[in-house]
Nucleic acid binder design. Structure first.
Length: 302
DNA sequence: AAGCCGTGGCT
DNA sequence: TAGCCAAGGCT
């Protein structure tokens, strides 16, 4: 049985778990471009930024186009942040484009143009949080880190804790579990990290998990408990229609497509309600996504 | 620390 | 169909 307590879990059982998941991964992993041997650390970092809350399928073409245009951090840093926002297209959460540009600038100016290998230095980069720092260190540099994303958290919630979904925010107990289950060898730990994530993405999915195809079926605590449905507090649905986010999206779409300065009147067309429209535009300016050029004239940041 | 920040595919 | 959800980060 998979358990959260390291003392209760024999080392042999943990090793068997590692082997099971890694063997499954070797047989079932998707062929993704950021996983190939020639994917640079920068390429891995670009993929991780794009994959923050955006599905793989939509990232694939954007990733290829981005790296063709900016194959190195220095290449991106030499271009205007607005170009990064434009290239980001409709991936969503465009502040990520700005942060990726800022990270490229920091890498160029403070790390000699090379993505830092040190976890703490990665974490210090704009847009790099707990997950992304561990992911880049693990995937690009084959280091030993607990990589806790939504997929891994769900796999652990089920297989280890026996509940359908993890809590809303990552807990200390989850981090403990992740660290305890980490293989000792760096190389094995790096493969384990991507393998558990892939299991969560392909089999142990949020809805309609394919437990019949799961290599952990026999040892899964959730399975053993009879797959009890989620009982926690209702997870807040993300409403979108009519929100500032929607208005921001419409405004930015106009600016992206304009390739230059845009008159206020063209922005006014995207939303009928003037107060919300102004608030959204102010927010974009405050975030650095939009630059006021003169009275009633705007553009993407230069 | 709860809420904000885009967009579109999938069931 | 309309929610639900997606390799999070920041404040």
């Amino acid at each position: 049985m998979v358990t959260a307590s390291s003392t209760a879990l024999p080392a042999a059982a943990v090793s068997r778990l590692h082997r099971t998941v890694i063997d499954w991964y070797r047989a079932n992993a998707r062929d993704l471009p950021w996983r190939t041997a020639d994917a640079s650390p920068w390429a891995v970092m670009v993929s991780e930024f794009m994959l923050q809350q955006t599905p793989v399928k939509r990232v694939l073409p954007a990733y290829a186009a981005w790296l063709e245009r900016w194959p190195t951090p220095a290449a991106l840093a030499a271009d205007a942040p607005g170009e990064a926002v434009r290239m980001w297209g409709r991936l969503g959460y465009p502040r990520r484009a700005l942060r990726l540009h800022a990270a490229a600038t920091a890498i160029t100016e403070e790390h000699g143009g090379e993505v830092p290998t040190d976890h703490a230095q990665l974490l210090a980069l704009p847009g790099v949080g707990e997950y992304t720092a561990a992911a880049v260190a693990s995937f690009a540099f084959r280091q030993r880190h607990a990589v806790l994303d939504t997929n891994v958290r769900r796999v652990f919630a089920r297989a280890v804790t026996g509940v359908e979904y993890p809590a809303q925010a990552t807990t200390a107990a989850e981090r403990r579990t992740a660290v305890e289950l980490l293989p000792a060898r760096e190389e094995t730990a790096a493969t384990w990290a991507v393998a558990v994530m892939e299991l969560g993405a392909l089999v142990c999915t949020a809805r309609g998990p394919e437990c019949g195809a799961c290599p952990l079926r026999a040892e899964c605590a959730w399975q053993r408990a009879g797959c009890p449905p989620y009982e926690g507090p209702a997870r807040r649905g993300q409403t979108y229609e009519g929100t500032d986010r929607q208005v921001r999206g419409k405004l930015l779409a106009v600016l992206r497509d304009a390739h230059g300065e845009v008159e206020q009147a063209r922005l006014d067309e995207v939303w009928h309600e003037p107060v919300q429209r102004a608030r959204a535009l102010d927010g974009l300016v405050a975030d650095g996504l939009v630059e006021p050029v003169g009275p009633g004239v705007y553009r993407l940041p230069v």
